[in-house]
Computed example of a mutant assay.
Amino acid sequence: MNRRLPHWLGMVGIVTAAFGCDNVSFGGMSVSLEGPPRDSLDTEGGTSVIDPDAGPTRFRYGPLLYAGARQGDSVLVVPVGELVEGRLEPLPAGEAGVRLAEQILEERLMPSRKLTLFQQGGRVGTLTVSSALGTSSEYCSPRAQAIGTAELIPSASGSARFLALEQSVGEERPYGIFQTSSVERPHRIGIQNLGGEALNDLRAQWPGTLQNIREDLQVLRISDDQNPSIIGTFLFQDQMAVGPAPDPAYSLMILGELQGVRFTRAFTWYRRVGDEGKGAPRFFSKLDWDGDGEEELLLEVFGAESRWFAALEKEGGSWTLAFQDPCGAPGDGPGPS
């Protein structure tokens, strides 16, 4: 494992706000000379590589995965990465990233374009783009962002976070049963026990009270597993936001799976600021975006100056860090495992 990668048809409507040419191939994502605006959807997939020195070019790229977070009656939507043969590939940084973000706004997030919305793995509605908000500077790689109007199944009308796929990809998926799981005492005890176990194994500095540094805890039902899983984040001398943290600070995120009558650690993220820089993750949402029958988990990670995305997937019975924006990759140290 590379630790351093680094129906319900009754719909309700809500207003949401999101967040001829010559071709040259760079091993996957195609780059072409500037031409008339068009949708550069690469339906054949392939490896995605962008040449940042290619000049005034247009990129040919595959379907994108988007993240959306509600803000009041609005939802901010931004692309997470490109789906290439089922894998989630990062968007480019720097000037190439800015140019691609502008192209995404022009081709994928223009008015009347539709995205299929998902929440906790299930299809819950459709977003129709109304206008673009430009390029966000909150992330360590440039991200396009747009606003639109969403139609949601009634049970998802109060959801705060969404994942989205372009309609050409997402509309093939059926509506499912949308369920939420509340955090109860056994989940709090479980994540507390797993957190203490992890700190001992890592020989990390203990806080005065472990419970006081738990910043996030969510209960999941992953894929067809009827047993609940838990995922929680502990932050020592830090906060779940973009901003600096002292060298002793660390983030600890744990995914726990129910085995019999107790939770066991299935994945551990540990990142100490003094060794690897700040990288405080929290669970965002889940979706089987690669179509293998197992849901992947999207994480939102907060750094000292920006934020980025990472993702976990289950392969061979074990959870691994399958994706992380390169700009957020840690330095030397134990990192996620």
Rank of each mutant, 00 (worst) to 15 (best):
E89A: 11
Y61S: 04
Q239Y: 06
D332N: 14
H7S: 13
G328K: 00
A132D: 15
L83Y: 02
E295T: 05
L199H: 05
Q167D: 10
P63R: 08
L91R: 01
I254S: 01
Y61W: 09
Y66K: 04
V24E: 14
S48W: 12
Q145V: 12
V301E: 11
L163N: 01
T43M: 09
G13H: 14
D39T: 14
C327P: 06
A241K: 10
V261M: 13
A156F: 00
E296M: 10
L163R: 01
Q211V: 10
D238F: 00
G256F: 00
S136N: 11
F178I: 05
L83S: 00
D325C: 07
T233D: 03
E95H: 12
A311H: 06
R203H: 11
A67I: 06
W319H: 04
A93E: 11
L312M: 06
V78H: 03
G97D: 02
D22T: 15
A204Q: 04
S181V: 13
E95F: 12
E102V: 10
L252H: 02
Y175R: 05
E85H: 12
R203I: 06
D238N: 08
D247Q: 08
V273I: 07
A67R: 09
R4K: 11
G208Y: 13
D290N: 11
S181R: 14
Q259W: 13
V242C: 03
R173M: 10
E85K: 13
A144E: 05
Y66Q: 03
G316E: 05
F59V: 10
G68R: 01
G20N: 15
A198E: 03
A18K: 08
A310Y: 11
G256S: 01
P326M: 03
W289C: 08
R58G: 06
G46L: 10
C21Y: 15
I231N: 00
L252P: 01
G81Q: 00
P36N: 10
W308E: 08
L194E: 05
G274Y: 02
D53Q: 14
P248I: 02
E172W: 12
E172Y: 12
K314G: 05
A96N: 05
V24W: 13
D292G: 09
T209V: 14
A67F: 06
L127W: 03
V124R: 02
V301W: 05
S130W: 04
D22R: 14
I213P: 01
V261Q: 14
I153G: 00
A322K: 03
S48C: 15
D275W: 10
K114I: 08
Y175L: 09
